[in-house]
């Protein structure tokens, strides 16, 4: 099964859920205002959000006029194009260090799936023959370190850890130091889940990021925000607030194997220009795929 197929299959549920509504829209006999209204509602119901939904409907309307579309049957192509446009600024490739280890920090709110995503990323890079190190920077939540260690065992990679309650910045520092001296290719740094409106926790994150850059110039090379695919419009606030304390470089959207449509990806990319880099599609080691705007759009729009 190719990457594309898997991505598509994972989104199957999301796809049918959106399509269930959209298919009805596209089957209407005449192209009139109700079709657009229904489309707007279907987008809203997929967490695309008010602003981007309105933008998208306008865009489709314009495209339909340009292409002289008269039947609703031809709308899916326009919608797909609008989605791709919304996502086009997103470059999903990972920024790797020129030489020395690449430092990847993974941040997000509680329960978004940070530790699981790190486990999968570790496996992904391990498969590519990279030397991977994990840093257990979630020193707050009970048993978070054990959870990462057990992912490390599954993926077959080493874990740098301190005690629960230790300074997360110190763990990351040690991880980077170990990676430098032992010639690792990639360090994946876990951090504790934190709600973005907790000022002191966000300050802590800023410190971790600063310490990383002091430990290795140019680090962190990637700061990935993990967003739960079932999250609604709050994901936008999360993006905004996290990018204020750490230089976000991309998004990991998790749990898209459920019925959630992950539509919130669209406003994040369109309004913040932040690329989605990975998509989580399950609990197994290999349930992580690079994001592709093309397949995301066509998975949602192809009838």
């Amino acid at each position: 099964m190719g990457i594309f197929d898997k991505f598509r299959k994972g989104l199957e549920k999301s796809r049918s859920a959106v399509l269930g509504r959209l298919a009805g829209v596209f089957k209407a006999s005449r192209l009139d205002e109700t079709v657009y209204e229904e489309m707007e509602e279907a987008l809203l119901a997929s967490d695309v959000g008010v602003e981007t939904s309105l933008w998208m409907v306008e865009r489709v309307r314009k495209l339909a006029r340009e292409k002289k579309v008269t039947s609703p049957e031809d709308l899916p192509a326009c919608l797909k194009q609008a989605m791709e446009e919304a996502l086009e600024s997103a470059d999903p490739s990972m920024n790797m260090a020129q030489d020395g280890p690449t430092i990847v920090m993974v941040v997000g709110v509680n329960g978004a799936g940070k530790t699981t995503s790190i486990g999968k990323l570790a496996y992904h890079y391990r498969q590519q023959g990279k030397k991977v190190l994990l840093a257990a920077g979630d020193t707050f939540r009970a048993a978070a370190i054990e959870q990462l260690v057990s992912w490390g065992e599954r993926a077959g990679v080493e874990v740098v850890r301190h005690q629960q309650g230790a300074d997360p910045a110190a763990v990351i520092f040690d991880g980077i130091a170990a990676a430098k001296s032992r010639k690792y290719d990639i360090v994946l740094c876990d951090t504790a889940g934190r709600l973005h409106n907790k000022a002191h926790l966000m300050a802590e994150l800023a410190k971790v990021s600063k310490v990383a850059s002091q430990a290795l110039p140019g680090a962190p090379h990637e700061v990935l925000l993990v967003v739960d695919g079932t999250t609604g419009q709050n994901a936008l606030t999360q993006t905004q607030m996290f990018s204020q304390v750490a230089p976000l470089t991309g998004i990991i959207v998790t749990k898209l194997d459920g019925t959630a449509k992950g539509g919130v990806v669209l406003p994040i990319v369109r309004e913040y220009g932040l690329p989605v880099k990975w998509v989580g599609l399950g609990e197994q080691l290999d349930d992580m795929e690079p994001f592709s705007a093309e397949s995301f759009a066509s998975a949602l729009c192809d009838v």
């Binding site: 967490d47 329960g111 999250t231 709050n234």
Partner: peptide, 12 residues
Amino acid sequence: VDAMTGQDAVNV
């Protein structure tokens, strides 16, 4: 239920 859940809360 996570209070931040979006439209999918209904399905769940």
